[in-house]
Amino acid sequence: MKDIIRFQDISKIYGSGNTEVRALSHVNLTVQEGEYCSIMGPSGSGKSTAMNIIGCLDRPTSGRYELDGTDVAQLSDADLAIIRNRKIGFVFQQFHLLAQLSALENVMLPMVYASLPQRERQERAAEALTKVGLGNRMNNRPNQLSGGQQQRVAIARAIVNQPVLLLADEPTGALDSHTTQEVMSIFAELNATGITVVMVTHEPEVARLTQRVVWFRDGEVMHDHMAPEDLGQLTVVT
């Protein structure tokens, strides 16, 4: 099994002097190919910072981060953009679909930045939408779709460039319990096909559906590979 994410002694410090905030402190974390992992923790625990660094949207202050074998800590902004485009698929709580584009066009967007030919874009976008069960809604605008459907479009967009890592930030935060189940089953299906999935969530029932829970607290990994029964107790603490 190869490592998709490897954090070695990662720290992230915001500000300096008296106003210094240590968001991450000497974190070591490894996620292997094919894992289905959730990151939890109270607000201010550093889970969002970890998420941003994993997603190459932010750089660590110190430490070494290898994504799929590449040391990304020292890459330029332009190179990071390419890494985000090719290796990572993002899913957000607020979906972030572009309102003026159809479902199909939204899914095609990452391939625009990958400079793929128009025909291939269309074929692959249609394929990805079919995979998330929206083969019949391809020409709908986001405002013509339900929340669950919009999140499925966003997932299709995230996987269309065949990333090594699917990174979801509170993907069910804006959904009701029924659609949460729907979306989680899609993540499970995608994971079953071999895609590595990492999601940040604050819902224990969502985390319970994943295979591994990483618990952050005060900028450090407090627990890793927690048993589902411990999860219940910890959420009470927060």
Binding site: G55, L57, D77, A78, A81, I82, R84, N85, R86, F90, F92, Q94, H96, L98, L109, P110, Y113, A114, R157, N161
Partner: peptide
């Protein structure tokens, strides 16, 4: 702002 953020997240460079 959000559109720009999303475009950047999915791989748009500053130049784009």
């Amino acid at each position: 702002t959000q559109e720009i953020g999303l475009r950047k997240a999915i791989g748009a460079s500053e130049q784009d």
